[in-house]
């Protein structure tokens, strides 16, 4: 009996139209990328940064652990003995075109130097900028701390997470 009623009065269609109608008054859930950015979550793993001490020296001690652990072999380190017998990092290179953003380097770092940042846009028209060095990685830290995002959509609130 109920079925006959429903068939005669198209109630299901109306229900459907009702849902459609209600969505017309809701906020959209999609983003108009690239004109609009998707939000980045706290635990997002983006382009790495390497922390520096207050005086600007890098926190990295050149232990080679990230190089060893990296599954895509994108980190290249060269160290030497400095003039005062200290451990000196001659070269630290990270190839973003190979990185799979697994975060192992962050995990393994014994001195809390390398971290996964929130910056993620690596789109470029040539490959030359993909190999980043210690200078860029330290600058990335600064940018992450100060919130100088290249991608303007990154929210200021994430900065707090960096500083912890």
């Amino acid at each position: 009996m109920k079925n006959v009623f429903e068939t005669i009065f198209f109630t299901e269609i109306l229900q459907g139209l009702g849902i459609t109608l209600s969505h017309m008054f809701k906020k959209p859930v999609t983003y108009r990328y690239p004109f609009e950015a998707t939000p980045i979550q706290d635990r997002f793993r983006g382009i790495q940064y390497i922390k520096t001490h207050a005086d600007g020296r890098t926190k990295c001690v050149g232990c080679y652990l990230c190089q060893k652990v990296c599954p895509s072999e994108c980190i290249h380190i060269e160290t030497d003995c400095g003039p005062n017998g200290e451990r000196l990092i001659r070269k630290y290179e990270l190839d973003l075109s190979r990185c799979i953003y697994c975060g192992y380097c962050e995990e393994v770092c014994p001195v809390d130097a390398i971290h996964m940042g929130w910056e993620w846009n690596t789109v470029a028209s040539d490959r030359s900028g993909y190999v980043i060095n210690m200078k860029t990685l330290s600058q990335n830290y600064k940018d992450n701390v100060e919130g100088n995002w290249k991608n303007k959509h990154l929210k200021k609130k994430l900065v707090e997470g960096v500083q912890q």
């Binding site: 050149g62 060893k68 030497d80 017998g85 451990r87």
Partner: peptide, 11 residues
Amino acid sequence: RIYLFKNRPWN
């Protein structure tokens, strides 16, 4: 000191 900090044994 000749080898000091130049590399790691696993490399």
